[in-house]
Design a protein around this nucleic acid. Structure first.
Lengths: 207, 207
DNA sequence: GTAGAGCAGTGACATTTGTCACTATTCGCG
DNA sequence: CGCGAATAGTGACAAATGTCACTGCTCTAC
């Protein structure tokens, strides 16, 4: 049942910024072989529209409300036969790892030249994979996360302005326990405060 | 010397994200009366290219390396007869104030529908002004900054993970003095830590 | 079956941070 | 001239944070 008739690549675009979404649509619709069939502003809607429209490729922004790009990718790939390309502003190595684990086909930072994006989409539609070489290199040299689950939990909350007591409440732990986790995380990451440790972990894509 | 011949609006685009820049170019070039004459990725280059190409309108992203949108706007408007539209992801009220003080003609968040952007550019080219109504309303209800210059200086550094000692070093002040400034800023903003105070000040667009 | 890793907690301690009171200088405004 | 505000600082104190040692508990893997 293989149809060799060349026909357009059906594309779904998900990005929470209306302006960017519209601009990307315009850019990609200029390509004669690409057709934007859906355009949504959050991960949940992306999963729903993917089911309805069965696109060939889904272009998902990583940073989105409701469900982020990775969550949306997981949902979509478990229900629809399609390919996923993740686009992101902050291309952190750990996120690339998780994206690949979610069977994403493409991973490009927003610093990519616009002309290349259409090529990436074509490659992915053809069954190939595309990973931004810059990020791939960083991800391969970066060591993997030395932190335990609970240390990560504590660090996650340390990115906001919460006190140790508040973090302990959220995690249902004693304040002393939280301080121990934070302290060991700080030692492992060579940070001088939990905020610095949280920042490092974030940069690496561990939280 | 008024030429009534309708001719294209010459546009300069500045955005640090290559993909967005290209997409915006594509979107706006679709409009028959708009011509993108320059496309740069930082504020300094924007100022230089504005001088060289003398565009009718400059579309500047607020978040850019080297010189941000406001700095670029100030430089451009002091050297070239043109209009400036600021586009931003985080539309904070204080930033709108500073933008207007810099004689910017347009201010739109990236959540604006793409179709509207061309209209905004046309309005601005025609000598009108366009301010996103949402942000305008917020800016008008928001009270103005109760902080002194030095309090703001100290808070600026508090957004990163610096210790009081490090901030004091950067500002060439005694640690005690910095703590006093931070303490009074925290009182004024009703925050429980300098990080929270810095966060509030950032949200308001004061730093 | 026991060694190691992760989890949860306590207690003691040093350091950092935040608060407060109080001094002194400078500058602009009425 | 003098008042107030902003700047810069000191010293004392309380509270929060980070460090360390050490106790149990539960898994998992060898």
């Amino acid at each position: 049942m293989s149809e060799s008739v060349p026909r357009g690549i059906r594309l779904l675009i998900a990005d929470d910024e209306h302006l960017i979404r519209g601009a990307l649509s315009a850019l990609l619709n200029l390509e004669p072989d690409i057709e934007v069939v859906a355009s949504v502003d959050n991960g949940v809607a992306a999963a729903e529209m993917a089911l309805q429209t069965k696109p060939d490729v889904c272009l998902l922004d990583l940073e989105m409300p409701q469900a982020d790009g990775l969550e949306a990718a997981a949902r979509i790939l478990s229900t629809v036969a399609t390919k996923v390309v993740i686009v992101t502003r902050h291309a952190r190595p750990g996120v690339l790892r998780r994206a690949l684990a979610a069977r994403v086909s493409g991973f490009v930072p927003k610093s990519t030249p616009a002309e290349e994006l259409a090529d990436v989409i074509r490659d992915v539609a053809a069954g190939k994979r595309y990973i931004d070489p810059e990020i791939a290199a960083t991800a391969l040299t970066a060591e993997r996360c030395p932190l335990t689950d609970r240390e990560l939990d504590a660090l996650r909350f340390s990115r906001s302005t919460m006190s140790v007591q508040e973090i302990a409440d959220r995690l249902h732990l004693a304040p002393g326990t939280v301080r121990n986790y934070l302290s060991s995380a700080m030692t492992k990451l060579d940070a001088r405060s939990r905020h610095e440790a949280a920042e490092i972990a974030w940069q690496q894509g561990w939280i």
